[in-house]
Amino acid sequence: MTTFVLIPGARCGPWHWRLVAGELRGRGHDVVTVDLPCGDDSAGLAEYAQAVTAAVGDRTGVVLVAHSFAGFSAPLVCAHLPVQLLVLVTAMVPAPGETPEGWFASTRCEEIRAEAAAREGRPPDGEAGLYFHDLSPGRAAEAAAHWREQSLTPASQPWPLSAWPPVPTRHLLCRADRLFPAEMLRRVSAERLGFAPDEMDGGHFPMLSRPRDLADRLERYGRSSSLP
């Protein structure tokens, strides 16, 4: 059995992880779905990391799974918990001193996103297209209905670490991600983590579009990280 700690991205909560959580629990794993204080203007990156730590409690040897914006807070957790593996899923990879809002300019994310739309012959995406283009209309509407209020406080805070934590890390991108285009995340992963990311089909929310495939990946990661 592996303990998976599923950390949501901006504007998200445990609901967005529920399908993957159900898959993993059905396979006999312990799963923690973290509820972040995303609507609290007094909560920044440190408080997000504290929320994860509190949710984990006295569990040991955990696999942290960070979606999207959680790439900024999950590494901070590694200083407070015995983390066996950190898995980034379509996630931001910060540089020391970089703010989340500054990340988009330094990675050229929005520029590359616009180039990808032009290359594919489609207009620039609205919110639904960026996040949920590969979901059924019903699931996309349900996902949007579960958006939460998101404070801007953590977006302006510099990432406080001087280097990536010394914890085994995997980075999983989705080839059809329109929010964080695959070509951009491949480069960012190579430059900032020093390795090529793993890849799977799907858009920015594989936990909603391909929950079984994502659970398969996470389970394999968990098994490999526990090997001597």
Rank of each mutant, 00 (worst) to 15 (best):
E191I: 08
A10L: 14
R113T: 10
L161F: 08
G222V: 04
V62C: 04
A118C: 05
E110L: 03
A91R: 02
A51P: 01
P154F: 00
R119F: 14
L152R: 02
M207I: 03
A51I: 00
L135T: 12
T3C: 14
L36E: 11
V83G: 01
D125C: 13
T169H: 03
S209K: 00
D35I: 12
C38I: 07
L36F: 14
A155F: 15
L161C: 04
F104W: 12
W17S: 09
L76V: 10
T53D: 11
T169K: 00
W164G: 00
W15A: 08
T169Y: 00
H29W: 14
T3H: 11
E115Y: 07
Q84F: 02
A163T: 03
G138Y: 09
P37Y: 13
V83C: 10
P158N: 13
T33E: 15
G26H: 04
Y221C: 05
L81N: 00
H67N: 07
H80Y: 06
G9F: 09
L172V: 08
D58V: 08
L193K: 00
G121D: 08
G57L: 10
S225Y: 00
L152C: 02
P168W: 01
A95K: 10
F69S: 07
C174V: 03
A21V: 06
P160S: 05
T53W: 01
G97R: 07
R217S: 09
R119H: 14
P37C: 13
L24Y: 10
D216M: 02
A144K: 10
L6I: 06
C78H: 05
A54I: 09
D201S: 08
A143T: 12
L85Q: 12
P197G: 04
D213N: 06
D134C: 02
S106D: 13
F104M: 01
H171D: 04
L185M: 13
F180Q: 05
Q50S: 15
I7F: 04
R186S: 14
P181S: 00
T2K: 10
S225A: 15
L214V: 09
V188S: 02
R220H: 10
A141H: 01
G203E: 13
L88P: 03
A176Y: 03
I112E: 07
Q157A: 13
P96E: 07
P8V: 03
A91M: 02
M1D: 10
A144L: 10
G22D: 14
R187D: 09
R210L: 15
E120H: 12
G203I: 12
P158G: 09
L173N: 04
F4E: 04
V20D: 11
P37F: 14
R139A: 14
A143R: 14
I112A: 06
P211Y: 11
W103Y: 15
S156E: 08
H67M: 02
P8S: 00
L152V: 09
G202T: 13
R175F: 00
R122F: 01
Y48E: 15
G102Q: 03
W17G: 01
F72Q: 04
E149K: 09
S226H: 10
V89N: 00
W17N: 09
L36P: 14
V188I: 11
V5T: 04
D213K: 12
T169W: 02
W15I: 11
G28R: 05
G203R: 05
A74I: 12
F195G: 13
D58S: 13
P197N: 06
P168V: 05
A144Q: 12
